[in-house]
């Protein structure tokens, strides 16, 4: 199969420029640059702008133990705690060893939490979560389809000598899969509305 495909692509490449509806297009799809652009286009979705947190809205605390400091103690923790005064949300961050970085991370976390509260479904985290779950679902679907197809092939191979029946089964599965995606799209539309 690979040498044949290679030959096909070589034959088709000059034709591609002139004839856009080449019959081999579906076969050659992974070889064309279009495949890359299609995925990146999906990713570049406009996110809502980040919420700006004013300094007078929050109280910043550097959690420190009581007792002496300075040269006498060598502290490794530099946790930062932010309290948003209007809503009372408290965010704590001790991810990194740098207090400055922790402050930045804590502010971003607080911004996300506030956005969730204010925008609900349209907030950055919600949009990202939805996209992630959609991707996960489609990946799962693809996996299921693949294994069902494999099972079908195996069953077809074992069941009878004719290949026709097996192919039919695969087609059936694919159709089913398409139906499922269609249904999902409708459901998504419902959610969005």
């Amino acid at each position: 199969m690979p040498p044949l495909l290679h030959g096909l692509s070589q034959r088709c490449l000059p034709a591609r420029t002139t004839l856009s509806t080449a019959p081999f297009r579906t076969v050659l799809h992974p070889l064309l640059p279009r495949a890359f652009t299609a995925t990146s286009l999906q990713l570049s979705k406009q996110m809502p702008p980040r919420r700006v947190i004013l300094d007078n809205e929050i109280i910043e605390n550097f959690l420190r133990g009581s007792g002496p400091g300075g040269q006498k103690i060598n502290k490794t923790s530099c946790a930062v705690q932010l309290k948003h005064l209007p809503t009372g949300i408290v965010v704590k961050c001790q991810e990194t060893r740098s207090r400055q970085q922790n402050r930045k991370i804590a502010r971003r976390l607080l911004g996300d939490r506030l956005e969730e509260l204010e925008l609900g479904e349209e907030s950055r985290t919600a949009v990202k979560g939805r996209e992630k779950s959609k991707k996960k679902k489609s990946a799962e679907k693809k996996r299921k389809r693949k294994y069902r197809a494999l099972e079908g092939k195996e069953a077809g191979g074992e069941g009878g000598l004719e290949g026709q029946g097996g192919e039919d089964a695969v087609d059936g599965v694919e159709e089913e899969g398409e139906k499922v995606t269609g249904g999902e799209k409708a459901a998504d539309g419902g959610k969005g509305g």
């Binding site: 060598n74 490794t76 530099c78 990194t96 060893r97 740098s98 207090r99 400055q100 970085q101």
Partner: peptide
């Protein structure tokens, strides 16, 4: 001290 083990410490940025 952890800073001697890791070799660095953050001072501001």
């Amino acid at each position: 001290p952890l800073q001697y083990l890791l070799g660095t410490e953050f001072f501001g940025d």
